[in-house]
Simulated assay, not measured.
Amino acid sequence: MFTIGDFARLGRVSVRMLRHYDSIGLLRPASVDPHTGYRFYRADQLRRLNRVIALKDLGLTLDQVRAILDDAVDVAELRGMLRLRRSQLAEQLAADTARLTAVEARLRMIESEGRMTTQDVVLKEIAPVRLAELTAVAPSYQAEDIGPVIQPLYPELFGRLSAAGVTPTGPAIAWYEPADPEGDAVVVHAGVIVDAEPSATFDVTMRELPGLRSAATIIHHGAMDDVESSMQTLARWIDENGYRTDGFARELYLEYCPDTPEKGITELQLAVYRD
């Protein structure tokens, strides 16, 4: 048999962990010296230790691990526990992937600072247009929150227009407005320019998008995940020229490339005014 220290090293765990497993009845020593209190373990107990560690690494609680190892959980219940954990890990992976994408986009923005100048900004009037659109609510105006909300809207919009026999006559336009004046959520409007009259048979919203008397505009090349650098250039121009804005940019998709977003070309339009 092995002392607790030797068994811990063989099992690649800490002595403190083995003492805890003993205290909760998860992995008892094979024997305990009645005089010294020293714990001793057998080699075959490594099998149970390995299973404890494996199940714990899946995210199961120690109580759940004990129930599984002591056959207190039937196969169906175990399958359900593992499926639930698989779902939780998948959600965590998706969230971590989204965070990584956001960090990479922010890093690219920092690295590109100074490449675009305010000379790339054009002040112009934007004409009103008729849009067919679908809407949804995003938790915030941040690119990582907008993307997952707006991306499925356009395939759905184009599919509904095709079914209604309506052909777009201009590029797609996205625009935004607060969902709640007191919160961060925004209403995402995914639209495309059309020349059709509103009809009850259309399963989309038809609206006249008002023009902008004065808009600061810039052409953004690439994926919208990297739009912050272009927005910061617009912000510098607005500040340097004494304008104000609400910060919600219209996005005119001059080259809409859903399958290759890095090839996209988008005109950002920010309404500006002076007090």
Rank of each mutant, 00 (worst) to 15 (best):
V75Y: 09
A94E: 15
M1H: 05
Y256L: 10
M1Y: 05
H20E: 05
E91V: 09
V13K: 02
T97A: 15
H220R: 06
Y41G: 01
D226N: 11
I265A: 03
P258N: 04
R28Q: 13
R160E: 06
F202D: 11
R79W: 15
I238Y: 08
G25K: 00
I53C: 07
V121A: 02
L107A: 10
D145E: 06
L134K: 01
F2D: 11
Q88Y: 13
S87T: 15
I173P: 00
S214N: 09
E251Q: 02
Q151I: 10
Y253I: 11
S112V: 01
D96F: 15
Y256T: 10
I265D: 00
I68N: 04
L131D: 00
W175H: 00
I53A: 09
V15Q: 06
G170T: 07
S31I: 06
I53F: 03
E91I: 08
R207M: 10
G191L: 00
S214R: 11
A163P: 06
I150L: 06
E267C: 03
G11Q: 02
R115Y: 07
R207W: 02
S87H: 15
R244G: 11
A200W: 15
L134F: 01
V32A: 01
G59M: 09
A215I: 03
P261M: 06
T201D: 12
V73Y: 02
M1I: 02
I218T: 04
G159F: 09
S112E: 09
D57R: 15
I24V: 14
V192I: 08
P198D: 03
A172I: 07
S229C: 08
D96C: 15
G147P: 11
A54T: 01
E177N: 04
R115Q: 13
A190T: 02
F2G: 05
D22V: 00
